[in-house]
Design a binder for these strands. Sequence first.
DNA 1: ATTAGAATTGGAATTATTCTAATCGCACTA
DNA 2: TAGTGCGATTAGAATAATTCCAATTCTAAT
Lengths: 130, 130
Amino acid sequence: MNNVGNLALTKQRQAVLQVIQDSEGHLTANEVFEHSRRILPGISFATVYNSLRYLRNEGLIGEVRFGMDCTRYDRKLTRHDHAICSSCGSLVDLDLPIPDEFLKKGERLSKFKAESIEVVLRGICPDCNK
Amino acid sequence: MNNVGNLALTKQRQAVLQVIQDSEGHLTANEVFEHSRRILPGISFATVYNSLRYLRNEGLIGEVRFGMDCTRYDRKLTRHDHAICSSCGSLVDLDLPIPDEFLKKGERLSKFKAESIEVVLRGICPDCNK
DNA sequence: ATTAGAATTGGAATTATTCTAATCGCACTA
DNA sequence: TAGTGCGATTAGAATAATTCCAATTCTAAT
């Protein structure tokens, strides 16, 4: 094992970290697995997931996930935003008026033709906050 | 079958729609399945998924999903936003400066203690847009 | 060196979602 | 109105994404 600071960087975790740091863009867990195998052929999928969670918790890599583990369905049809509790996972609606220039700015910076824009606030819900 | 307008509302789809419309909040597919079974005991999980997709495409129900089918990992650690292409699913970074009052407003409306805030722009990416 | 306890690994299991062969039901014909 | 062709719909089976947990490995104290 290779301790840097107080970090437990096993060779599996080093391999996964190297894959992320050498990558451009946004790899899926599957892609990380495929690349990690080239560095460490025996590594398992589960270890890649364990390592990704560890590295994310240590703040060494970023994750795009929005805190949800599955799709949710809703009778509400109008555009609205959401707040997700990092502690209990609850998802609540939030109506933030989006200034039109905000959407315009997003279009300009991304070069996308925008269909919709949504804000996700992550934090601690009133229940979990005592 | 029961056609309303040009909608093919089979009894399965009617059951799923009724479940969503009678619900408060944000049901998972699994919860929709459990509730639908009370109305139509023989309905299968796959049919619930098919119906949810149909009803979403027809604009009869809302979906919270952010267009991603799995978690993605990233070397970038600083706060940033994302644009997701509705056509090809590509995910690109977007740096929108979030005014501090925007976060404050989110906190006030949701009653959450905010940890972070992220904007998701959904639209058509330059490649898919010819 | 030995061992107890903690941390890590990875095969197996679980959960979420999609695929597709079989079935259903409407429109048309005789 | 009975038969038939065909697109739409259903749902069992398969796949994909993620987590669980028993076995193993590592660390530190003796």
